[in-house]
Design a protein around this nucleic acid. Structure first.
Length: 417
RNA sequence: GCGGCCUUGGUGUAGUGGUAACACAGCAGAUUGUGGUUCUGCUUUCGCGGGUUCAAUUCCCGCAGGCCGCCCCA
């Protein structure tokens, strides 16, 4: 094979596209049910946008970006996530204001230069939402409910919801200080990553899975204990709303997310049906990002769902919906040049009635054409050979019963209704 | 970025230091214009590059790709 897909990318073939289409249809339905409208932003943005918003010390920015220079030397990057582009687009087009709630959703490919693995690709697809304009915890709850509704709509079960609060610009510094305080003594025994994190981003130490570091991490103070009153209330309110909605969750105070812009609420939904890459969606609140990117101080919440992972679950769990693609209704089996011409003519007419029809383009034998028709799942085959041309009527065969009847060319349309 | 396993026709597999087998799919045929069963035949292959050897698909090294774990995340 001379050419193959670039590492970490995949072709989504006809065999699989029905699942994707179904997935997207369900998502769109749920999104609009909750009042969200779609935005489509460019696949690439200025590198600066991502560096600014996601944070220069995060893995995504530090080592996973598909960055390139265009012909004028501008530094651009294939979007690794969609929150920053949506904020950018919303600001640039005046879609948001402090006085109104704006609900947006997106579906599309994202790019991260990572080592491929099951459930992790370099080009993958996310669907997600971003809501702007309210700092009410009820909105956090709604967003989480919406997220769960997405999975419910697909019949996916066995999910876990993890919840945490990473505080705000007021109380987070206290927490980082607490963490540094806690890790100070043991940091020299911890892994290299943790040591750099200790300097630049102590929060991220909590994310470390290294066995040696675990002990120290487990004893680390939880962020929810150092939250300021406002953040603490916010979390309590959110939990109250979730309770009202009957949503079960687990407080996971090790849940820090890999992007710097989160404030207060962070959450992640995991599936038991997957391997190591078990997070199917994740998100949280980001009250400072809009302002940070040049807008007014407008609070926001959002999340993103990993679509490949959902597809994996659907495939495994056999929830797999029966192929929705409608088969061919009519196959025109033709013989001889005149038959082919007549078939071509009829094909056009039949299709104009909205009936899916197909014909032979290879000059195959009648036997072979019937075989093809059978494989296509055709309900009827209409046979046109020299005899039929002479009589101006073809043979309409019902595949399931093998019954045949003569039908005049001009009456074929009627017969199919 | 690190580690482990893997790479044979379109697909799934077998196998050997002397150029490869099976199943399914595909195509064709079984009195010449009729499908889904059966039978027969045909097409297509040892990821790439080096090395060892008289000879490698089989042994060794490198690369690429895949899978799994770490990391991270969706």
């Amino acid at each position: 094979m001379k050419y193959s897909v670039p590492r970490g990318t995949k072709d989504i073939l006809p065999q699989e596209t029905p699942i994707w289409q179904h997935l997207e249809a369900v998502f769109r339905r749920v999104f609009s049910l909750f009042g969200y409208q779609e935005v489509r932003t460019p696949i690439f943005e200025s590198t600066e946008l991502f560096a600014r918003s996601i944070g220069t010390t995060t893995d995504i920015v530090a080592k996973e970006m598909y960055e390139f220079k265009d012909r004028k030397g501008r530094s651009l990057t294939l979007r690794p996530e969609e929150t920053a582009p949506v904020v950018r687009a919303a600001l640039e087009n005046n879609l948001i204001s402090p006085d109104n709630v704006t609900k947006l959703y997106y579906i599309g490919p994202m790019f991260r230069y990572e080592r491929p693995q099951a459930g992790r690709q370099r080009q993958f697809h996310q669907a997600g939402v971003e809501v702007f304009g309210s700092n009410s915890p009820s909105l956090d709850a709604e967003v989480i409910l919406l997220n769960l509704e997405l999975f419910k709509g697909l019949g996916i079960r066995d999910l876990g919801l993890n919840l945490n609060s990473v505080g705000c610009s007021k109380c987070r510094p206290n927490y980082t200080k607490n963490l540094q305080e806690h890790f100070k003594e043991n940091i020299k025994n911890m892994c290299e990553d943790c040591r750099t994190r200790f300097e630049h981003n102590p929060l991220r130490i909590l994310d470390c899975k290294n066995a040696n570091c675990q002990q120290t991490i487990e004893a680390a103070p939880a962020s929810i204990n150092t939250l300021c009153d406002e953040c603490r209330d916010h979390l309590n309110e959110l939990m109250k709303f979730l309770k009202i909605a009957g949503v079960e969750y687990v407080i996971n105070n090790r849940l820090v997310r890999g992007l710097d812009y989160y404030t207060k609420t962070t959450f992640e939904i995991t599936s038991n049906a997957l391997g190591a890459q078990n997070a199917v969606s994740g998100g949280g609140r980001y009250d400072n990002l809009v302002e940070q990117l040049g807008g007014k101080a407008i609070p926001a919440v959002g999340f993103a769902v990993g679509m490949e992972r959902i597809v994996e679950i659907l495939k495994k769990s056999e929830i797999r919906n029966q192929k929705s693609e409608q088969g061919i209704i009519l196959f025109l089996a033709t013989m001889g040049e005149e038959g082919q011409v007549k078939g071509f003519e009829l094909l056009k007419e039949i299709r104009s009635l909205g009936i899916a029809a197909e014909m032979d383009y290879l000059g195959k034998s009648l036997k072979a054409q019937l075989k093809v028709a059978d494989r296509l799942g055709a309900k009827y085959v209409y046979i046109i050979g020299d005899d039929e041309i002479a009589k101006e009527s073809g043979i309409l065969k019902t595949m399931a019963t093998s019954e045949q009847q003569e039908v005049k060319f001009e009456l074929l349309k009627e017969a199919l209704k």
